[in-house]
Simulated scan of single mutants.
Amino acid sequence: MPDLLDELLPDYDEKRTIENARHFLLRDFPRLQRMAHLSVADLHSPSMDGLPKAPIKANSADEPIIKRLDAKALVQAAYDAINACSATSRYILIKAYVRGHGDTTIYLDLHMGRSQYFVHKQTALLEFAFAFQSDYDLVVRKT
């Protein structure tokens, strides 16, 4: 049984895991949200000249659609991971990374002191990293 627990709950580098989660939510998540909302004008019709081609490869017109669907799936998975977090963590993650509110506004809304808020924010980032792990692994394992 300890082997199963070690596999499910490996030792992890807390600081690097928090940084990975922060980077994803600040940099990658907004880009994925934009990708998931590509306009129809960005999609191109397939070109057909009637001649067979070898080797057959994916239609280039499909690539933007596939990327958009992949981005939508990852954005939805991130939202699901946020919703899997505790209530305080969920509030912090949504306010800070989805709605872009500043830290001062958030910790005042939560009636917390500044230092207490930053401890909760790190906890929120860890919760997110573990909740998101099956879709996109942000957890840094100790070697």
Rank of each mutant, 00 (worst) to 15 (best):
P2R: 11
P2M: 14
D3G: 09
L4I: 15
L4K: 13
L5M: 06
D6F: 04
D6V: 01
E7P: 04
L8G: 11
L9W: 04
L9E: 06
P10I: 01
D11P: 13
Y12T: 05
Y12C: 01
E14R: 13
E14F: 04
E14G: 01
K15V: 04
R16K: 15
R16S: 14
I18R: 12
E19L: 11
R22V: 07
H23S: 10
F24A: 04
L25H: 04
R27I: 15
R27N: 15
P30Q: 08
P30Y: 06
R31P: 00
R31V: 13
H37M: 13
S39L: 07
S39K: 15
V40W: 13
V40F: 05
L43V: 15
P46H: 11
G50A: 05
L51D: 09
P52G: 03
K53H: 08
A54I: 08
P55H: 08
P55Q: 13
I56F: 06
K57R: 13
K57E: 11
S60P: 14
A61E: 06
A61F: 02
I66H: 00
K67L: 05
R68A: 13
L69S: 11
L69P: 00
L74K: 14
L74V: 02
A77T: 01
A78D: 06
A78I: 07
D80P: 02
A81H: 05
A84G: 10
C85F: 03
C85I: 02
C85R: 04
S86I: 02
S89V: 10
R90F: 08
R90N: 13
R90T: 03
I94W: 06
I94C: 03
K95Y: 03
A96C: 05
Y97H: 04
H101W: 13
H101V: 03
H101S: 09
H101D: 14
G102Y: 08
G102R: 06
G102S: 06
D103K: 12
T105N: 08
Y107F: 15
L108D: 11
L108N: 14
H111M: 09
M112T: 04
G113Q: 15
Q116F: 08
Q116H: 14
Q116L: 09
Y117S: 06
V119A: 07
H120F: 11
K121S: 05
K121M: 05
K121F: 09
Q122V: 03
L126F: 06
E127T: 03
F128E: 09
F128Q: 12
F130R: 15
A131Y: 08
Q133A: 08
D135A: 15
Y136W: 12
Y136R: 12
Y136K: 07
V139T: 07
V140R: 02
V140N: 03
R141G: 00
